[in-house]
């Protein structure tokens, strides 16, 4: 009787599970019959396996089913949504471009206005100065090359009563005329388009999300 080697134990373990070849099986069975230590080792292994097979089974504490979120499933995005979003963005860009162009136009117009008004203004001043309204006007013309409305009135305070409208400088008159100029209609068009398109994209996205939730929500919510 000899103590079985680990190789013997390994063979016995495999034999126990029925995974030895026919020839190895026959040889090992002969050894088990003849050698009590080999038979005892086999009994030990069988007992260990028998105990393990009796391990109590536990019930799951909860279901492990996956929610779409756990599974990394995102709700589908309708193809129209990115298209509408892009279109909205483009409309917004056009709005900004139009607005910028308008502002630039106004700025350049505003800057050019005093220059343009300078010449006729002096003529008018001369005209006013030579008129019955004021005797100090020519003196003022000598000191101020481009008079503002205030300066003009200050230089001719006596003219405030009856002929005030006629005494306003041409620059002020042109500013009055420019203010009520109609805003570029494209500004409204681009802005309106951008808002409508993004609202449509959001509505479609929301509807698609709700449809997705209806489809999967009931089944996977715990």
């Amino acid at each position: 009787m000899t103590t079985p080697s680990f190789r013997d134990v390994e063979k016995l373990s495999t034999f126990l599970d029925g995974h030895l070849s026919q020839a190895e099986n026959t040889r090992l069975e002969a050894r088990i019959r003849s050698d009590p230590s080999v038979a005892a080792a086999l009994a030990d292994l069988r007992q260990a396996r028998a105990i393990l097979r009796r391990t109590p089974k536990r019930h799951v504490p909860r279901n492990f089913t996956l929610t779409p979120h756990m599974a990394g499933i995102r709700p589908p995005v309708p193809r129209l949504v990115p298209a509408l979003s892009w279109a909205s963005a483009m409309a917004m860009v056009l709005f900004v471009v139009t607005l910028g162009t308008n502002l630039l136009g106004q700025l350049s117009f505003g800057a050019a206005a005093p220059m343009l008004s300078a010449a006729p203004m002096t003529n008018e001043n001369f005209g006013v100065g030579s008129g019955p309204a004021g005797t100090q006007a020519p003196a003022a013309d000598n000191t101020q090359v481009t008079p503002t409305a205030e300066a003009y009135i200050m230089t001719a305070p006596e003219a405030t009563a009856p002929g005030v409208t006629r005494l306003l400088p041409p620059a002020a008159v042109s500013a009055e005329k420019a203010a009520p100029e109609p805003v570029n209609i494209w500004l409204y068009i681009w802005l309106g388009l951008a808002v409508i398109l993004i609202a449509a994209a959001l509505l479609i996205r929301q509807a698609s999300l709700q449809a997705f939730r209806r489809k999967v929500g009931g089944k996977h919510n715990p």
Binding site: K57, V60, F64, T65, L66, P68, I73
Partner: peptide, 24 residues
Amino acid sequence: HGDLDAFNTLVLAYQDIVYNMALR
């Protein structure tokens, strides 16, 4: 093919042995 319901049916079938294995 991405059918989560089909996978969850498999989960329900295997969750006991999976949990017991992890527990041991």
